[in-house]
């Protein structure tokens, strides 16, 4: 089982738009909610009402600050869950076969009844996408909501990951990267979707859309946006201008100035 499928029929995954993510953590909590009640053991919490509370989460939102060479620092909210890598090192290291990548759709899963909780897959994952549940002793990771996306007990519109369904800003998109016409493939192409740590050769399926360029008005003189030209500096001049303008205004108020 721990050998990776040579090719998967579909490549299901997420596109996360860093230009739009406001860092609200909605996806974090809906993921926790869905996956506590569904797939496998509940996501447990240790000392939930005490000091150092510590629980299992399959999706977490980081906040980074990026300082360009010149200009203002930028803040980027950065959600991260399993990227369902094509060349998933977490799968091949697993001694029990509990970790596997589905040949149907490329989803990387842990079969909890086989997992011995050795933690090696988490060591092998460069992204910190796996967490060992402290109560259950088994490895937990994003399931891409495999129990939602095909779930016939859910209305068709709801057959998408919990985090995507809930994201208020619409910063998360779900789809099949094997299909060049899918929403995720198109977004990736249009917006330059990128891989995280491409140098490690994991070939992540999930893509991140980079933030659009910011703070254009802080740079040098921008010829495309000239300042306004004054019509009058003084109140009297302004009122004189007003008179002239008003005499030109049409009477029925349906046109643009």
């Amino acid at each position: 089982m721990t050998s990776l499928p040579e090719k998967t029929e579909k490549k299901l995954g997420l596109v996360i738009d860093l230009d739009t993510c406001v860092g609200c953590h909605a996806c974090v909590i809906s993921c926790k909610g869905w996956n506590t009640e569904n797939y496998g053991a509940p996501l447990s919490d240790q000392r939930p009402y005490g000091t150092d509370p510590m629980g299992t989460f399959l999706n977490r939102v980081h906040s980074y600050e990026v300082q360009p060479d010149s200009g203002q620092a930028q803040t980027v909210h950065f959600p991260k869950s399993c990227l369902h890598c094509e060349d998933a090192p977490c799968v091949t290291v697993c001694p029990t076969g509990a970790s596997y990548k589905r040949s149907e759709d490329g989803i990387v899963l842990v079969n909890e009844t086989d997992c011995i909780g050795c933690g090696l897959c988490a060591w092998a994952c460069p992204y910190g996408a796996r967490e060992l549940d402290q109560a259950e002793g088994v490895m937990k990771k994003c399931t891409l909501c495999v129990d939602r996306i095909y779930n016939e007990n859910l209305p068709e519109v709801d057959r998408e990951p919990a985090c995507v369904r809930t994201c208020p800003a619409g910063a998360r998109h779900f789809g099949d990267f094997a299909d060049p016409e899918s929403n995720v493939s198109k977004l990736t192409a249009e917006r330059g979707g990128m891989d995280l740590m491409p140098e490690l050769g994991t070939k992540p399926v999930n893509k991140y859309l980079p933030p659009r360029p910011k703070d254009a008005w802080d740079g040098e003189e921008d010829i495309l946006a000239p300042f306004l030209t004054p019509v009058a500096e003084e109140p009297s001049g302004f009122l004189g201008w007003l008179d002239k303008q008003l005499s030109r205004l049409p009477g029925d108020g349906k046109t643009d100035s």
Binding site: G23, T75, A169, R212, D215
Partner: peptide, 11 residues
């Protein structure tokens, strides 16, 4: 600059 202001094009 956090949250909504983090995604603002101009801050």
């Amino acid at each position: 600059r956090t949250g909504y202001n983090a995604v603002a094009d101009e801050w």
